[in-house]
């Protein structure tokens, strides 16, 4: 078995050296397929991170009037403390709100300095419990808050956050479907390229058949060739993806972090990178195997021949 493996690797390597152009085509289709999948994964995983950051941020802001009395504030405090939907709440005074604005928008500090008086209202920042994050619960809490004396406004971004989550899920599903289609396309391309190899190795194949060589020796080189092409394609895809990612992070990273409030832009985790390479190799293997199935009866050779000749004349 080990000898069959060595043999397969040697023959596949030789074949890749022989058919550089068509091998390149194979590698490129795998690269494109995995690039699409990888880009989708990078974008959606960062979006997910972003949404998670937003979700854990203040989810209900209860703005209070400047004229609120200490009793009214205490009543509000009690209501929030007593609600089962609330995980935590925090009072943000007018001056704290101004300080927050100055810290977050340093560029606008001169503008803030020109304010005749502090325009920011005081508020309660309310975080909800994980299990209370349904539109109805939040709606009823908001309604009872609005009825309280001294409350000027209640804002919550639950609903559109939920929509965003749904959109993201749809986007991810679309990504998988798209990637699935391209991956199948890539496998077919590999299979066709490996069929050209069948033609190039027709003399070897005939001899192998006539001397009764085991299937591992007949098919091994094709499967191995597909695997090598798939692995190479995946590595190239990762490299391109990472370069693109590094470029974007260098150019727009800080801005994105500021504007969106996520800790850092992330590349794919190592396990997923390895997964992509393994996946690329698996796709290549599948393509090679499909191509080699035709070799058993020698039919593959006959039907592959015109294709190979047509290619050769280009």
């Amino acid at each position: 078995m080990l000898r069959a493996l060595t043999y397969s690797i040697q023959e596949a390597w030789e074949s890749l050296g022989r058919s550089r152009l068509s091998g390149l085509v194979s590698v490129m289709t795998i690269t494109v397929a995995l690039l699409i999948l990888g880009a989708f994964l990078v974008v959606t995983s960062n979006l997910q991170q972003l949404l998670a950051a937003w979700q854990s941020a203040a989810e209900i802001s209860v703005y209070v009037a400047d004229t609120i009395s200490p009793e009214q504030r205490a009543a509000l405090d009690d209501l929030l403390a007593g609600s089962r939907a609330v995980a935590s709440h925090e009072f943000v005074s007018k001056s704290q709100a101004l300080a927050r604005f100055r810290a977050q928008f340093a560029d606008l500090a001169p503008v803030a300095a020109t304010f005749p008086h502090n325009p920011f209202p005081a508020s309660f920042d309310v975080r909800l419990r994980q299990e209370a994050r349904q539109a109805q619960t939040v709606d009823s809490l908001a309604a009872s808050l609005r009825k309280m004396a001294g409350v000027s406004d209640v804002r919550y971004d639950r609903v559109w956050l939920e929509r965003l989550l749904l959109t993201l899920a749809a986007l991810q599903a679309m990504g998988w479907v798209l990637a699935g289609i391209v991956v199948v396309g890539a496998a077919l391309t590999v299979s066709n390229v490996v069929r050209l190899t069948c033609y190039a190795r027709r003399h070897e194949l005939e001899i192998m058949r006539l001397v009764g060589a085991p299937m591992a020796y007949v098919r091994g080189p094709f499967v191995m060739e597909g695997a090598l092409q798939g692995g190479a394609g995946a590595l190239v895809a990762l490299l391109v993806l990472w370069s693109g990612f590094a470029f974007i992070r260098g150019r727009y990273g800080e801005m994105a972090l500021m504007a969106l409030g996520i800790p850092e832009l992330r590349f794919l985790p190592v396990q997923l990178c390895i997964g992509l390479v393994v996946g690329g190799m698996a796709v290549g293997c599948a393509g090679g195997l499909v191509a080699s199935l035709g070799t058993e009866a020698g039919e593959g050779l006959v039907s592959a021949a015109p294709v190979a000749e047509a290619q050769a004349t280009h």
Binding site: H203, I207, V211, G212, P214, Y217
Partner: peptide, 27 residues
Amino acid sequence: GFVFQDFKLIPGKRVFENVSFVPRVLG
């Protein structure tokens, strides 16, 4: 063992490899 009119040697392989090819693919 078989021998054909058109020899059926593998063009891309040297004489020695042509012959050792058979035991090679038989493991």
